[in-house]
Write a protein that binds this DNA or RNA. Structure first.
Length: 278
DNA sequence: ACCGGAGCCTGTTAGC
DNA sequence: TGCTAACAGGCTCCGG
């Protein structure tokens, strides 16, 4: 679910909420959520650790601990992290028990509780010494300066898969998912069904620019809020207001009026304007 | 190396 | 209203 802009919003929101706080106790209710190490070792290793640094790589949230290890969270489709206030001291007041979709609970020294909740159970959490063991295979970060049109060209060169599938491939480019792939291809005027290797350099430059513009606009709007995504606290993201094609199948293209086409590529719903995108 | 499809999960929505 | 099928911001694994 969350893509680069949503994950970036998560990290920016979590940093002031968690920085300097210490985990007193961990509980894992769905062991498969913990990818590395096993759930028992995870609860043991995370206890007593303090949140020290905050970062993102692709769609992975990187929470650096004072032990030097990194707690890495991938929300996949429906994962969410929420910081819950301490239970009320008044014994008669309503408590806030975790529901059946809450799979990991971290009790903090402030009395607060950081909860990982995930309806579809696709998300994963790692606790590792070496971040690269989890994120080492990812492609370039689209918003870093090193991501030049040439880099995108190299990663698409010779590829026969359609460009939509390649944008979703995290080793080609990190952080782009279904929304921002469709929106970027629309802004670049490129048909998502085209083979990646068939794009000329001028088209690659357009796609490169479109990816950066769309991702930055997504961050600016604090991400897109659909059924299953909202930032950890405060306002919801608003980028869905700016969608040009995503989930607009059958509706008129804002640019030319032709109906937006919905099809399936790489097993994912794909939306494009057949007239504006070639 | 690369590509496409099955599988992982549960909930919501569209269609008969 | 009730059932069923399709769909959902993602990724890994496996066979060709």
């Amino acid at each position: 679910m969350p893509e680069l802009p949503e994950v970036e919003t998560y990290v920016r929101t979590l940093e002031p909420l968690l920085k300097g706080k210490t985990v007193l106790k961990a509980e894992v209710r769905w062991p498969r959520t913990i990818a590395v190490p096993d759930a028992a070792r995870f609860t043991d290793l995370v206890r007593g650790r303090r949140f020290a640094s905050f970062g993102r790589r692709g769609k992975y949230i990187l929470l650096g601990l004072d032990s030097g290890e990194t707690l890495i969270v991938h929300l996949r489709m429906t994962g969410e992290l929420r910081l819950h206030p301490p239970p009320p001291s008044d014994p008669g007041a309503a408590a806030n028990p975790a529901d059946k979709h809450t799979h990991v609970l971290l009790a903090l020294d402030t009395g607060e509780e950081l909860r990982y909740r995930d309806m579809r159970k696709f998300g994963r959490i790692w606790l590792v010494e070496d971040e690269a063991s989890v994120v080492g295979k990812l492609g370039p970060e689209p918003l870093e300066e090193a991501f030049l049109p040439r880099v995108l060209a190299d990663n698409l060169a010779g590829r026969k898969a359609n460009v939509k599938a390649l944008l979703l491939n995290q080793t080609v480019l990190a952080g782009v998912g279904n929304i921002y792939a469709d929106e970027s291809l629309f802004h670049a005027g490129i048909d998502p069904r085209r083979a990646g290797g068939s794009l000329d350099f001028e088209e690659i430059e357009r796609l490169h620019l479109a990816l950066r513009k769309v991702l930055l606009a997504g961050i600016e709007a604090q991400g897109s809020s659909l059924q299953n995504y909202a930032p950890p606290t405060g306002a919801k993201g608003g980028f869905q207001e700016q969608f040009q094609v995503f989930r607009r199948g059958g509706e008129p293209c804002f640019h030319c009026g032709a109906p937006v086409t919905r099809t399936v590529l790489a097993q994912r719903s794909t939306h494009f304007c057949p007239s504006c995108q070639s």
